[in-house]
């Protein structure tokens, strides 16, 4: 089985999580509202997937693991795009980040076939539970298995800045993720998020194997 950071995993409930510290109350409440966890960027353990539980505020994040056999369903950011899931979302007209998805989708289709919403918007689209706020940014992951030429990166940043919410694009390279905002700046080094933690890498070495 293959899992990537930002994939959403459906589970039965809190009892299926494995964690080092006791579950806080907000974690239980959060899982009973929406039984989904987010795959974290951390090494896969044997038959255990590193995941995080989202709470309502930014400070509410809880790290745990889920055994493979407790995963009921995997929803990738790409699947949310394939289904154009925002069209069915009842809050489409109230949340700017959701409303900007058709434009973003049209723009991104020129750059990558593999992309999708993450963060609160992705979570809401996958779970159908109110998660995004009117002030939410739109977080996106864009798969870039090979070097994204700088002109394209700058073009993408320009195009994507035209929507009315702040769009935060993470470029997922084979070595880890970088922020489009930082990469398109052209300055070295950039911060690469790897499964063994963040590191600074030279801009010309991001895609090196």
């Amino acid at each position: 089985m293959e899992f990537h950071p930002h994939d959403l995993l459906k589970l039965k409930g809190e009892e299926d999580l494995i964690c080092d510290s006791p579950l806080q109350d907000w974690v239980k409440e959060s899982l009973s509202r929406a039984p989904f966890v987010v795959v974290r960027r951390a090494p896969l353990m044997k038959k255990l997937v590193p995941v995080g539980v989202r709470g309502e505020s930014r400070s509410e994040r809880f790290a745990a693991f889920i055994p493979y056999d407790k995963i009921l369903e995997t929803i990738t950011p790409e699947q949310l795009v394939e289904k154009t899931s925002w069209e069915q979302n009842e809050r489409f007209h109230f949340i700017d980040a959701l409303q900007s998805l058709p434009h973003v989708s049209k723009t991104l289709s020129r750059f990558s076939e593999n992309w999708g919403p993450t963060g609160s918007v992705g979570f809401e689209l996958a779970s159908n539970v109110y998660t995004a706020k009117p002030t939410s940014d739109l977080d996106l992951v864009v798969r870039t298995p090979s070097l994204l030429p700088m002109e394209l990166a700058v073009d993408l940043k320009t195009q994507i800045s035209k929507v009315k919410v702040r769009v935060d694009v993470q470029l997922e390279t084979p070595n880890g993720a970088i922020a489009l905002d930082e990469y398109s700046n052209g300055k070295s080094p950039v911060l690469l998020r790897t499964e063994n933690g963040p590191q600074l890498v030279k801009i010309q070495e991001i895609w090196n194997t």
Partner: peptide, 25 residues
């Protein structure tokens, strides 16, 4: 919402730039 690891790296990066040794480039 940066993790402590990211905070530490960014501080180190800021310090390096402030000392004007852009050898990465």
């Amino acid at each position: 919402g940066a993790t402590p690891g990211v905070v530490n790296l960014r501080l180190a990066q800021a310090l390096e730039v402030s000392q004007d040794v852009p050898h990465h480039q």
